[in-house]
């Protein structure tokens, strides 16, 4: 009989892993669209790619602060990030957009409605991310849940190149446990809430894959300048 551990609610009501994840959250990034450029699809896409590149640097630093991530071998750390980087970016945009109806908050100074998304050729992606936002809004996703789910998305990225599968499984287990523990204390009224949150991950992956495909085609087009880290990760997903 396998040992089945029930989530044990922490007595203080605060899960240590969740607290560490809250502390690891990156600072806000501003988009700062170039005021010298006239508004165009190229300008919008350039602004988004530049913003994504700067967020990626912060997200790599964030990953290193996830309890247990830095204990993985360097190759597995790279594999997880190469698979999940866009999911992390998309989940961050979705969480920032929760207070806004029908708009995506890429940054405080860069909020995009459907009309602007259409002009930038991003309408399909905009709709897909808004579907995710509406799912999280209807659940009233909390910051503690968001940070834990984001770490789970990274640990559960299904890379085909993992060397130490047990170590990655251990990281998934500890983050899963942290989510169960948090829900056990804060959402006793809904014993299925943790499961409901995990069940949003397929839509996150689907949306992220859409975003990667779209930005790959923009890259091939060659009209939008992209920074090296963003290019490197786009190429990792091809």
């Amino acid at each position: 009989q396998p040992h089945r551990k029930q989530p044990s609610c922490s007595t203080l009501g605060e899960n240590k892993v969740v607290t560490l994840l809250l502390g690891a959250e990156p600072e806000k990034v501003c988009a700062m669209p170039d005021p010298a450029l006239p508004d165009s699809d190229i300008k919008a896409l350039t602004t988004l790619c530049d913003l994504a590149d700067r967020e990626l640097v912060l997200n790599i630093s964030w990953a290193k602060n996830i309890p247990g991530f830095s204990s993985l071998c360097l190759s597995d750390q790279m594999s997880l990030l190469q698979s999940a980087w866009m999911e992390i970016l998309v989940l961050r945009v979705a969480f920032r957009s929760l207070p806004c109806e029908d708009k995506l908050v890429f940054a405080d100074d860069y909020i995009m409605d459907a009309e602007q998304a259409k002009s930038a050729g991003l309408l399909e992606l905009h709709k897909a991310i808004l579907q995710l936002v509406s799912r999280y809004r209807s659940m009233r996703l909390e910051k503690e849940e968001f940070v834990t789910l984001k770490a789970i998305a990274l640990a559960n990225s299904d890379s085909m190149h993992i060397e130490d599968v047990e170590a990655v499984q251990g990281l998934q287990d500890s983050l899963h446990e942290a989510l169960l523990d948090y829900e056990c204390v804060h959402h006793r009224e809904d014993p299925r809430r943790a499961g409901k949150l995990i069940m949003t991950l397929p839509l996150l992956r689907q949306t992220s894959a859409k975003a990667v495909r779209h930005f790959c085609s923009i890259k091939q087009d060659g009209r939008v300048p992209m920074h090296k880290l963003f290019l490197e990760l786009l190429e990792a997903n091809v």
């Binding site: 990156p26 700067r54 640097v57 912060l58 790599i60 630093s61 964030w62 290193k64 602060n65 360097l74 190759s75 750390q77 790279m78 990030l81 190469q82 090296k228 880290l229 490197e232 990760l233 190429e235 990792a236």
Partner: peptide, 20 residues
């Protein structure tokens, strides 16, 4: 790995958070 130089360098960099 050679193809992923920047990711590799950022992960190896011990200072955290990474300077932009």
């Amino acid at each position: 790995k050679e193809k992923h130089k920047i990711l590799h360098r950022l992960l190896q960099n011990s200072s955290s958070p990474v300077d932009l």
